[in-house]
């Protein structure tokens, strides 16, 4: 099956006072129609920059310095701003982290939805309004024909996120980028929103790129997962393999830091010592080296590439090489 989105060795840089800083480096992944790709990682690891690069919303200071992003058969980096505007909201939509501030406070939600709908679909005002109400109904807003004329402040966070989803999905995008869609919501609402996104995905076949730092959300939603650390992909695999046998020490650390219900009384949760290196002085070699319990000499000298560690499983760690070579030795012996 043809891939909907191919990101190939993407590097994004930002101009700062200290010169150009590379935010994400060598990020590659593919996404098929109807698939959900989870991107996990801690704050500042480049999850959001990856999504903003795809939308070409990096602002005046950021630019894609290497690599390419192919959506359907278009290279997004080469499109003009007008062509890109046509894609945004129409073929690729985005949901943001903060539903409380993602809606313009001075307009009714209907006004905002109708604006977006009419921008990309040739509907008259009345039809667009009817469609907006229909969309609100689909995302589970009670009494949509009344709520359509409400201002955002009259809605709770969960309701607003539903409106954002309705807006993002109204033009039936091929790809939905959800940048931490549930982080700002409390857990019960979080479950509802995830459930809703799943349902809508099944109905419309939209591919979802789900950005989160919550492994629970990943387990719930994703088909494929990429784990990012310090601007690089460190592990890429399907969701089951990720939880069953994480290969990269960083992913293993993340797994150990999830609280478990069957933990011993008084047992302390594991954490990964140290912190992410700053973008300005990224160490040579493996970027996780300083925090890694298995760091070797080789890690200091050379940045590991993404090494196959099984079927559909890639990891950026020299450890993944060893079993293969040991297996080879065993075979020779």
């Amino acid at each position: 099956m043809e891939h909907l989105l191919t990101v190939n060795r993407l590097q994004t840089a930002f101009r700062t006072d200290q010169g150009e800083v590379i935010s994400i480096d060598d990020v590659s992944f593919r996404l098929k129609a109807g698939e959900t790709l989870g991107i996990v990682g801690e704050s500042g690891c480049g999850k959001s920059v990856t999504s903003l690069s795809i939308m070409r919303l990096l602002g005046a200071k950021g630019r894609i310095s290497r690599g390419e992003i192919i959506f359907e058969d278009k290279s997004l980096g080469k499109l003009t701003e007008a062509q890109m505007r046509d894609i945004r909201g129409n073929d690729i939509s985005m949901i943001f982290q903060e539903p409380m501030t993602s809606l313009n406070p001075v307009f009714t939600i209907g006004h905002q939805m109708i604006e977006a709908i009419r921008l990309h679909m040739s509907l008259d005002k009345k039809a667009a309004r009817a469609y907006a109400i229909e969309m609100l109904k689909r995302v589970g807003i009670p009494r949509p024909e009344v709520m359509v004329d409400e201002y955002p402040h009259a809605l709770s966070g969960g309701m607003r996120q539903r409106v954002m989803i309705a807006m993002a999905l109204s033009c039936e995008p091929r790809l939905l980028i959800a940048d931490e869609p549930t982080t700002a919501l409390d857990v019960t609402i979080q479950a509802q929103i995830l459930e809703l996104m799943k349902k809508l995905k099944q109905e419309s076949g939209t591919a979802i790129m789900l950005i989160t730092h919550d492994l629970g959300v990943i387990a719930e939603m994703a088909d494929k997962v990429i784990v990012m650390y310090a601007g690089q992909v460190v592990e890429e695999t399907d969701v089951f393999t990720l939880f069953d046998e994480p290969k990269h020490p960083y992913t293993q650390g993340l797994m150990q830091s999830i609280p478990h219900i069957d933990a011993e009384h008084g047992e302390r949760l594991a954490s990964i010592p140290g912190s992410v290196p700053s973008l300005q002085n990224m160490p040579a070699g493996c970027r996780f080296r300083a925090r890694c319990p298995h760091a070797m000499e080789k890690c200091e000298a050379e940045l590991p590439p993404l090494i196959p560690a099984g079927k559909n499983h890639l990891t950026r760690c020299w450890l993944a090489v060893q079993p293969a070579s040991m297996a080879k030795e065993a075979a020779y012996g």
Binding site: R88, T101, S102, V106, A116, L119
Partner: peptide
């Protein structure tokens, strides 16, 4: 810097529209 402006850009709204119809009223 508000999210709704970013959301507007992400929805594909043009710059004059964002400037006069979304930022100005605020």
């Amino acid at each position: 810097q508000m999210d709704y402006v970013k959301a507007g850009v992400a929805l594909g709204l043009g710059t004059p529209r964002i400037l006069f119809k979304h930022i100005l009223p605020n």
